[in-house]
């Protein structure tokens, strides 16, 4: 057996605990192989626990462990860093809990926050930087840590309660889907619910950065005077919340 064949056999042992692989690797002496098998699975479970502490609290220890085992069995790790192992855990939760959308929405929130935590540094944009710019050609850059998601449940409220260490509310469907955004202010990650207009405005800005296009979208949606006023108010709010990282004329 050459090195590549041995390493594929070892992968097979770790992922499936195949007796055939154990026989070929160690002649059936599994004591040493079992140490590696145990290390592999324990490390992945621990990674999911660290990545999704509030999902674990919400589901309870036994259900979380069962979900983690399902994920490990179905999604062997492949990313360059262990920290990224849980990136698609939300998809496993969605399959396991199709009637409990708050579970995978809670997972989305935890993943977005952890990604924002190590997103590239940038900004923030100051009000002073906005003076004397050509608004027709100005392109605003959102913080690199920014991301947005549409939720159908009160997952954001559940996350907030768990984060504060207080009893979370019962899960419930929202009257209509809503949006949450995540970004980082300096070294603090932020989760915030936004209304439909602000969500659409942020997505518009995320796509092409044009403030002129943003104004046009808001005017089309709200009318001339209200649309222009809304654009100004949103811009001031985003600067204050450090959602913007820069501007290019």
């Amino acid at each position: 057996m050459n090195l590549a064949q041995m390493q594929r056999e070892f992968q097979s042992w770790l992922v499936t605990a195949s007796d055939d692989a154990a026989q070929r690797l160690a002649g059936g002496h599994v004591a040493g192989l079992s140490v590696y098998q145990n290390n592999y699975r324990v490390q992945l479970v621990d990674c999911l626990r660290v990545s999704y502490p509030h999902v674990q609290t919400w589901l309870g220890e036994d259900a979380f462990l069962a979900a983690a085992i399902t994920h490990i069995d179905n999604s062997p790790p492949h990313a360059w860093t262990l920290d990224a192992y849980g990136d698609d855990f939300g998809e496993t939760l969605a399959l396991l809990y199709p009637d409990n959308p708050e579970v995978h929405e809670l997972a989305w929130i935890e993943l977005a926050l952890s990604r924002a935590f190590v997103a590239p540094d940038a900004g923030p944009l100051t009000l002073e930087a906005l003076s004397d710019i050509d608004w027709e050609s100005a392109r605003l850059h959102l913080a690199p840590s920014f991301t947005a998601h549409v939720v159908t449940t009160n997952a954001a409220d559940i996350w907030s309660a768990l984060q504060q260490g207080i009893a979370p509310p019962e899960s419930e469907m929202l009257a209509k889907p809503a949006a949450v955004v995540v970004w980082r202010r300096q070294f603090t990650v932020v989760l915030e619910a936004v209304d439909a207009v602000e969500h659409a405005a942020l997505l518009q800005l995320w796509e092409n950065g044009s403030f002129d296009a943003l104004c046009s979208m808001l005017v089309a949606r709200l009318g001339e005077s209200e649309g222009v006023a809304k654009a100004g108010a949103l811009l001031a709010g985003w600067v204050g919340k450090e959602l913007l990282a820069g501007v290019a004329a």
């Binding site: 070892f10 592999y40 490390q43 992945l44 492949h78």
Partner: peptide
């Protein structure tokens, strides 16, 4: 190995 990373 290949697309698999055991992280061990």
């Amino acid at each position: 190995i290949d697309h698999f990373n055991s992280h061990d």
